[in-house]
Nucleic acid binder design. Structure first.
Lengths: 139, 139
DNA sequence: GCAAAGTCTACTAATTCGATAGGAATTATG
DNA sequence: CATAATTCCTATCGAATTAGTAGACTTTGC
């Protein structure tokens, strides 16, 4: 299950990427357009800024805007910031690997091997879709 | 993230499918072999039995065993019993569909469309791998 | 100086997860 | 028939996570 944090984060990124120009957008504007709790969105955008994908400007006329690199960034990167691991099981995670306590031999664990397949197929989507492509919505 | 319930359930199914013959196996045996809390496994196997994939026998010499159909059953079926929806978002779930409260038009939601892709690629693995194939572990 | 924005920390309510406890029902065996 | 072994079932629990809220602080433009 995708957390709301990730869902909201992706929707906000999509919103910003779809805008003409790149003027700062206020949190309140996005939150209203996408039906997201404003305070919650606040913390989500903050984490995307800290990760280096958004810029921000305080004060009147301020808001958030996409940094240039964001458009070419694959969704996998945003997913990892917002949700964490893409893998369904830590023992097959590339970026958040952890051994399973219960599993003596990973390579012989059927679940492990299955989840590698699932991870790879999900990854091929998330790594090969940039934010730019994400918002090109082919009806 | 895969819940432990699903992970344990799949491991238990794998254990049973790998056995010679189809004599009942006691919960305690599986729980020890796979390092799973016995009481927890108890409830997991019970739900697989209620779903019609396992048989059980009480009393001495009793235990759980695979019903014939289980071997030919795709993992997707077990996943849905144990974990619930395969989709990462209810609005793209085939078996557990729910509308998103925040989304006025699903077909124009980028997250929705992305998650359809993810669902389909995951599904193609889980629907095309039967329990039988699952345990044929190609080193 | 004032109002409008983001920043930051802390808190909370609800839910879910993994696990446990304990007894009831059923079956094999001697 | 008595006993032990096993599944069946209900109830409960603590910890963690999630989604959201509150409120004060900082920066900026006018």
């Amino acid at each position: 299950m995708l957390s709301r944090k990730t869902k909201y984060g992706l929707k906000a990124l999509s919103y910003m990427a779809r805008r003409e120009g790149n003027q700062p957008v206020q949190i309140a504007v996005i939150s209203e357009a996408e039906n997201i709790s404003q305070k919650f969105l606040e913390s989500i955008l903050l984490s995307l800024r800290k990760a280096g994908y958004l810029g921000s400007k305080k004060g009147k006329g301020g808001g958030y805007y996409l940094l240039e690199r964001a458009n070419k960034t694959p969704l996998a990167a945003f997913y990892r910031i917002l949700e964490g691991p893409i893998a369904m099981v830590p023992c097959v995670s590339l970026n958040f690997y952890e051994r399973c306590a219960d599993c003596p031999d990973e390579s012989r664990c059927d679940v492990h091997n299955l989840m590698i397949q699932v991870r790879d197929s999900t990854l091929s989507i998330l790594e090969n879709t940039t934010l730019e492509e994400f918002v090109k919505n082919p009806l």
